[in-house]
Design a binder for these strands. Structure first.
Length: 884
RNA sequence: GCGAGUGUGAUGGAAUAGGUAGACAUAGCAGACUUAAAAUCUGCCGGUCGUAAGGCUGUGCCGGUUCGAGUCCGGCCACUCGCACCA
């Protein structure tokens, strides 16, 4: 190909061929794809600005971590997003479709340790590489809005947002028992611990008592649950996962008085959701970490034994201790407290199954009505007391029970509440303990505050300074960003590498000017990715994190697309961020993502493609071999988006074959140079002469590409069918993309149109072919194919003489009148079994349908001698004759 | 254990409000073109009985509702994912 391949939009082009001897059988994607990518970029056709005159549409795909290489999951994610963005653009929306990089994080630092490359350089070259790869896919991004979270221009605002949280009391430091990953040498948020292991490296997570920064996400727990109702466009699965994660429960905190104060405690407070069983309490259990435990050990004859037990429990890993099948173990402290409603003495135990972090770290034991308590009581021969009797079955007898009774029933042995249904008793007893000052109603959440500090280098520094005089001081806005120094020695030893840089650590106090030390921990990368969708609305702004007018114009994200693995982490954090920013009056919306599509994984050989399993297919190779259009088309065609997709090389070839088939079809009607001349000569006399039996007809003299209101009534049946297929296809593709997100069926609809066009081309005599209709059908075909296969569509659009870029055309409409068939297939069933198929005029009423069915000879034979019980008719569908 | 999802030809999948099960594609088989192959084009393609017309059967299993069930209801089974001693 010649160097300058720029071609003005809107001038009829010759279709280039790969080689004369292969003729027109395959199209030259290797030439076409880069050429159009360049031209789209040069002419800025994907650049957008706020335009109040147009309805806006914000289409966003989760931005990638710049690992250096695109994988098939990315290809799938971004192909889906690109179809949506292009489709919405063609439908007349002002579409924001940006891309960027989630660029902070551990891999860069680990690479630096391994290869001695600074994380900034490593990340930068990875981004450059991945950007190039992404561009070969032909995606409609406005690259002017690209952001990378690791640039000072970006993390300045991450730090600024941290300070907004800080000033609002939503960021705080506390000493806590936190999750520690020994391999990553840093702490982790609860959300990053999967079954007791680090979600990144799978190492067993340890507990460490450390002074750490947290975001007060628990303040938003209730709203994060309630507002899930505002998200009808989210999959229920994701909403359920978030709801479970937040884990709301309603109960009562109840005080069990101690007979005499111990170490300043005069009572033990337990949390329960089963206050209806309070009369059945036979013991009480503390977590070994409970603050009273140390005092209970004073002058305790069993001290050594109890300490040994505590040591054993604390030595158990998080997984082991919290696993359901771990055996419950405990030890009696020798102390008692008092049941607040009965005054009975209650033995105080310690046990491994009570969690210090949840509720009050103390629970009441009701073995008869809680299975865990039952198992514990059995093991240590603790007393059982039945307080709920089931209705309609024999009464429970404590000594005969082999498991706890946890269902509904009527209260017994419960003083004034006897005879009450236990569900009613929940409210009644809660009210009673509140009135009598024995307890308070309490809502608890499983969700913990978000631990955001990390003892690693490659992240946004937390903008806090510690002054000997003034204590903890926020870095003032004008001093932001706190720049991450470049040349740092990495020794993962559990402390931030920034600690080893005296010039970073030592600073002056912004308040008093005295000597001070900087915070050396950096922020969790999930902080950076919790607001990037806001930054895209005005990524150039150096005055604010985001421009209010831009953010109000674009937000919220109309369609968000990404993997389900972020169902809790990123999606929950982003919702939290948006709510906080809404409350701080920085954004108008209080939910970031109106609609969410969670795409399935790309599998090979039944399991997820991954480097470690060695079952990957490289997008680069596929694009080099078949082109981006083929890769995109295959991945969209092979499965509906939310389902897992099994990679198939054969399937890719099929997609490629289809594109060639489209290419040849258009070429048959819009031939290249030599053929075109021949066609023009041949057509001078009749206008639509075929020169050699194949359809060598030039359509170029027909004025308009699209026929707006086809006069179907005047057409013959072949022509009508052609028009119908063209319009049906537009309808199906419009609905499949716009309403159902079923790209696979949209593609199959397009394939059916192509098949129909071939049928017409090969079956209708060349002289009888209706050129205007063909021209119209080809134009519609190219327009609906454009979102899926943007390069070939652009090339063909130019070839048929379309004006401007195909991607700036209006989405084609369909004429409902053109969809109507005058003959429709109707099946005749007898007793629900299909016995005959008829072609009948469209729109016959029930009577006429029945008459037509009865008139059929075969039907008559089949019902001969039988009694017709009734006849059911469905217009244009079926007749069911019920006989006996 | 709890919650959610999935289950349809050899394979990926389709059937959008209960109405022709298997669209579209992949693989396979047969044929045309070719010296041959590739590419392309055409036809066939759930199982089973039948020369055929056609019959029977068939959407994980069992049962139900209905003129009619892949679709709705009840009960199971398998797999996948999430949560998992949260009191």
């Amino acid at each position: 190909m010649a160097q300058d391949q720029r071609r003005p939009f809107g001038v009829i082009q010759k279709i280039p061929r790969i080689q004369e001897d292969i003729m027109q059988e395959r199209y030259d994607f290797q030439a076409i794809e880069p050429q159009w990518q360049q031209q789209w970029q040069d002419e800025h056709i994907y650049r957008v600005t706020e335009d109040p005159a147009k309805p806006k549409y914000y289409c966003l795909e989760m931005f990638p971590y710049p690992s250096g290489n695109l994988h098939m999951g990315h290809v799938r994610n971004y192909s889906i997003g690109d179809v949506v963005a292009r489709f919405k653009t063609m439908q007349g929306f002002n579409v924001l479709h940006p891309m960027g990089w989630d660029a902070f994080g551990l891999p860069a630092e680990n690479a630096a340790i391994k290869h001695g490359v600074p994380p900034a350089d490593w990340t930068k070259s990875n981004i450059a590489n991945m950007r190039t790869q992404l561009k070969t896919m032909g995606l409609s991004y406005d690259w002017d809005r690209e952001v990378a979270t690791c640039t000072p221009e970006y993390y300045k605002w991450t730090q600024w947002l941290f300070l907004q949280f800080y000033n609002a009391g939503l960021a705080y430091k506390k000493k806590a028992n936190v999750n520690w990953c020994p391999s990553c040498a840093t702490v982790l948020a609860n959300e990053q611990v999967v079954e007791g292991a680090c979600e990144r490296c799978d190492s067993t997570v340890e507990k460490k008592a450390l002074e750490q920064w947290f975001f007060r996400i628990t303040d938003y727990a209730q709203r994060l649950i309630d507002d899930l109702e505002k998200l009808p466009g989210w999959p229920d699965k994701v909403k359920t996962m978030q709801e479970n994660w937040i884990g709301r429960s309603e109960g009562v905190e109840m005080d069990f008085p101690l007979p005499s104060p111990i170490g300043g405690f005069d009572k033990l407070t337990v949390y329960t959701t089963r206050q209806d069983t309070i009369y059945g309490v036979t013991y009480l259990v503390l977590a070994p970490e409970h603050p009273l435990v140390e005092h209970l050990l004073q002058n305790n004859p069993k001290e050594a034994e109890i300490r040994a037990f505590i040591k054993k429990v604390l030595g158990q890993s998080e997984i082991l201790r919290t696993a359901t099948d771990t055996e419950k173990e405990g030890i009696f402290t020798g102390h008692y407290c008092q049941n607040p409603v009965t005054g009975e003495p209650v033995a105080i135990w310690l046990a491994n199954y009570v969690l210090a972090e949840y509720g009050t770290g103390a629970v009441m034991g009701v073995p008869t009505h809680d299975q865990r308590d039952f198992e514990f009581a059995q093991k240590y021969a603790l007393p059982l007391k039945v307080v709920i009797q089931p209705v309609g079955v024999p009464d429970l007898v404590a000594d005969d029970m082999d498991h706890a009774y946890e269902d509904e029933g009527v209260l017994v042995n419960s003083d004034r509440f006897n005879g009450m249904n236990n569900n009613d008793a929940l409210a009644a007893i809660a009210a009673y303990v509140e009135e009598t000052g024995k307890g308070v109603r309490k809502v608890n959440f499983r969700l913990r505050d978000w631990l955001i500090s990390r003892q690693r280098y490659w992240g946004a520094p937390i903008p806090i300074v510690y002054c000997d005089k003034c204590g903890e001081v926020a870095v003032p806005d004008q001093d932001l960003p706190v720049i991450l120094p470049n040349d740092v020695e990495f020794k993962p030893n559990g402390e931030s590498p920034l600690k080893s840089r005296p010039d970073f650590v030592h600073t002056t106090c912004p308040k008093c000017g005295g000597p001070a030390q900087r915070e050396t921990d950096t922020m969790d990368t999930f902080v950076c990715s919790s607001w990037y969708y806001l930054r895209y609305t005005a990524p150039y702004s150096d005055k604010d994190a985001f421009e209010r007018s831009a953010v109000d114009y674009w937000m919220n994200v109309d369609q968000y697309i990404g993997g389900v693995e972020h169902a809790i982490l990123h999606l929950l954090y982003s919702r939290f961020f948006t709510k906080v920013l809404h409350d701080l009056n920085l954004v108008a919306v209080d939910e970031p993502f109106a609609n969410l599509l969670t795409q399935g994984m790309v599998l090979l050989g039944g399991s997820k493609m991954s480097k470690s399993k060695g079952n990957t297919v490289s997008p680069e190779e596929i694009i080099a071999k078949y082109g981006a259009d083929t890769a995109r088309l295959f991945i969209l065609f092979a499965a509906p988006p939310e389902r897992d997709l099994e990679w198939s090389d054969r399937g890719v070839e099929g997609a490629h074959r289809f594109l060639n088939r489209v290419w040849r079809l258009v070429q048959a009607y819009y031939p290249g140079e030599e053929a075109s001349t021949a066609g023009a000569e041949a057509s001078t006399e009749t206008g639509n002469e075929a020169s050699d039996g194949k359809s060598r007809i030039s359509l170029q003299q027909i004025a308009s590409l699209l026929i707006t209101n086809p006069d179907v009534a005047s057409l013959n049946s072949d022509d009508r069918e052609l028009v119908r297929m063209a319009h049906v296809t537009v309808k199906r593709v419009t609905e499949d993309i716009g309403q159902r997100f079923n790209f696979n069926t949209a593609v199959s609809a397009i394939m059916e149109l192509v098949n129909a066009l071939y049928l017409y081309k090969d079956k209708v005599a060349p002289k009888a072919q209706n050129l205007s209709l063909i021209k119209d059908a080809l134009a519609r075909l190219i327009l609906v194919l454009a979102p899926f296969a943007p390069h070939i569509s652009e090339e063909l659009w130019q070839a048929i003489g379309g004006s401007g870029s195909v991607h700036q055309q209006s989405w084609p409409s369909y004429d409902p009148a053109a969809l109507v068939q005058d003959q429709v297939p109707v099946v005749v069933q007898i007793n629900g079994k299909v016995r005959e198929k008829l072609q009948l005029p469209n729109g016959l009423d029930g009577e006429a349908l029945q008459a037509a069915a009865m008139d059929n000879q075969r039907v008559q034979e089949l019902i001969q001698g039988k009694t017709i019980v009734k006849v059911i008719t469905v217009p244009n569908k079926l007749v069911n004759i019920v006989v006996r």
